[in-house]
Amino acid sequence: MTSHIATVARKEFEDAGRSKLLWSLIGLLVGLVAVGYVAIWYTADDITAAEVLSFLGVPLQVILPVAALIAGYMAVVGERRSGSVKLLLGLPPNRTDVVFGKLLGRTAVVGVAIGLAFLVSLVLGAVLFGSVPFLEWLGFAAVSLLFGTTFVGLAVGVSAAVSTRGKSMAIVVGLYMVLIALWELLTAGPYYLIYDESVPVEAETWYLVLEQFNPIFAYTNLANTVVEGSIFPFQFQYGLQSMEAYQMTPAERYPGDAPFYLQDWFGIVVLVVWAVVPVAIGYYRFQRADL
């Protein structure tokens, strides 16, 4: 059977490219990178391009997940709501082509956003700071692309799994709020109830595993392995841990040699899981949906 994933992906890339909101977010991301580089060059002394590169972690964490979710949350359910999915499936593409073609097309849009942001950083790094740490820049770009793909996969998976726009929006917004605003309450809160104390630096292993499993936390851990400086996770903090703990990775908080699932590189596995599992669930439900 011939695959039409590439055909669907091209159509999705073109359709997503017509979203004014999405391009506004991409423009905001690129603009923040440009303004940030110029501001750092103007105000900071004796700073290198390698150190400035870590600044990208802030706008990428803030804007990239939102752009990815907007790009993906209507990918499949929008076709179902309009009825165009029946017409699409009446043509050569089948349901597999639809899901994975939309995933590929929407990921390409987010990839363009990441590429533009890093291209601006590359040019401004060379112009303003005189050099570019190319290997670090390339590694950071690759990690960021995986981060963006994670949220596209999450959104497309949800979109394929549900039947209405409202459900898709509610789920992706709810998951985003859990990751950004509620993660510490949902993890450190039970820790306090169980052990009757705030989370110490050397916390129980199960808690460190939960910390590592947040894709935002996994992304910053990975990014910190390839860039100079420190990139801190963009998450709400409620003071349920010591201040020292907020600045440490799970591997650093583990007494002794940390197991592999607490190492920084394991963040790659975490991001892949967050991308693949929602798509697998959405694909399964879409294959069996009565359209």
Rank of each mutant, 00 (worst) to 15 (best):
residue 166 G to E: 12
residue 250 P to A: 15
residue 121 S to K: 00
residue 246 Y to E: 14
residue 40 I to M: 09
residue 17 G to L: 08
residue 176 Y to N: 11
residue 73 Y to F: 15
residue 259 P to T: 14
residue 70 I to A: 08
residue 123 V to D: 02
residue 63 I to Y: 01
residue 65 P to Y: 02
residue 60 L to E: 08
residue 195 Y to C: 05
residue 186 L to A: 09
residue 173 V to D: 09
residue 204 E to C: 01
residue 225 T to C: 06
residue 4 H to A: 11
residue 285 R to L: 14
residue 159 S to D: 06
residue 275 A to D: 07
residue 42 Y to H: 14
residue 57 G to C: 07
residue 23 W to H: 08
residue 66 V to P: 00
residue 63 I to T: 00
residue 239 G to Y: 08
residue 48 T to G: 04
residue 167 K to C: 01
residue 65 P to K: 01
residue 127 V to M: 02
residue 182 L to F: 15
residue 120 V to Y: 00
residue 72 G to Y: 06
residue 185 L to W: 10
residue 157 G to N: 10
residue 262 L to R: 15
residue 213 F to Q: 04
residue 111 G to P: 00
residue 251 A to G: 10
residue 98 V to D: 04
residue 255 P to S: 13
residue 291 L to Q: 13
residue 110 V to L: 02
residue 206 W to N: 05
residue 186 L to E: 03
residue 58 V to F: 06
residue 247 Q to C: 02
residue 32 L to K: 02
residue 106 R to M: 12
residue 54 S to D: 11
residue 27 G to C: 04
residue 139 G to P: 06
residue 166 G to M: 13
residue 112 V to S: 03
residue 25 L to D: 02
residue 159 S to Q: 08
residue 112 V to N: 00
residue 245 A to P: 06
residue 192 Y to V: 15
residue 185 L to A: 00
residue 276 V to I: 15
residue 107 T to L: 14
residue 286 F to S: 01
residue 12 E to S: 15
residue 82 S to G: 10
residue 266 F to A: 12
residue 19 S to K: 05
residue 29 L to D: 08
residue 167 K to Y: 03
residue 162 V to Q: 09
residue 183 W to H: 09
residue 68 A to M: 08
residue 48 T to A: 05
residue 176 Y to T: 08
